[in-house]
Design a protein around this nucleic acid. Structure first.
Lengths: 156, 156
DNA sequence: CAAGGTTTGGTTGTGCACAACCAAAATCAT
DNA sequence: ATGATTTTGGTTGTGCACAACCAAACCTTG
């Protein structure tokens, strides 16, 4: 009956909000990646796209968007920059001209070797135990799923 | 001796990377806030600034940046938009003309009442138990601290 | 085939996020 | 006091992120 029963001023405490913790942690971790990725000539979102391509080879823009949960407004210019950097090719699928297939160039494929050490480098730089990271990752996935499925609840 | 001993292709698996989980969760949760904050005419980062102001009243740009871990390149235009919206005032501190003090207008202060219900609305929309959120928040803070203090380790 | 719809990327516009750089004010050292 | 240094915001440029809108390609169904 003391807290969490009705809105109080204290509920607007920045330090108590999970979303801010998430927002700050995401930016802080991305900042750790930045100097490492800079040597590959990649930004963090570009690195994510490359991860998918290294794993799956040819991938449509739609599939990339589903994997990374990014829409075409974000991916289109990003992929153009990767193409301009000579790391990927883009071509319409002859079987379905609506679809654009993104594939690795030799240079893009070659970058993979330089990227294999990155996850370890980041883990070491932050110094957070692997077991804790695994459990954090699972909790975050749950949050993402819950948030993605969140009802707008304004339609009633 | 099986895994996590040396870089393997599997280490480049998107689904195993904590940073992506963080990145996706942060965007997903922000997306839950978006329609709620839209009714207040705020974006999520603007809401964070307002939280600090509701809590502390007059605050310098520097102090805002420290609280939110954002730099002036992000805050300056954001504060200008809040000022244009009539929610905050900006004025040089007469005691130190380098410093700009941001304060709430009556309209900005009035918005506070409409905001008190937001944390609860988000918590309900996502449906994640409060206890879990508290522990997640603590883990995230640890990550943020570790990442912020992370050495560049390229100077040797 | 033709009219209706859906799917897929792309474009445009707004708002962060951050690096790099800049200018004015304050502070320090001599 | 005077010159060097630091502090504080601001500006500029690049790159996401997403809403809103658009066009072309597909897919029906009659």
């Amino acid at each position: 009956m003391t807290r969490a029963d009705r809105p109080e001023p204290g509920d607007l405490d920045l330090q108590k909000q999970v979303c801010f913790a998430l927002y700050a942690a995401s930016r802080a971790l991305t900042a750790v990646y930045r100097p490492v990725l800079e040597r590959l000539g990649l930004t963090y979102p570009q690195y994510l796209v490359m991860l998918v391509l290294w794993e799956r080879g040819q991938t449509s823009v739609k599939a990339l968007g589903e994997s990374l949960q990014l829409d075409s407004g974000t991916l289109s210019p990003l992929l153009k920059r990767l193409e301009a950097a000579g790391l990927v090719d883009r071509a319409r699928d002859p079987r379905d001209e609506r679809s654009v297939v993104v594939s690795l160039t030799p240079a893009g494929d070659g970058l993979r070797a330089q990227a294999t050490g990155i996850p370890r480098a980041i883990a070491e730089a932050t110094g957070v135990p692997a077991s804790e990271l695994a459990s954090l990752r699972d909790t975050l996935r749950k949050i993402t799923e819950a948030a993605t499925a969140a009802p707008d609840k304004e339609t009633t």
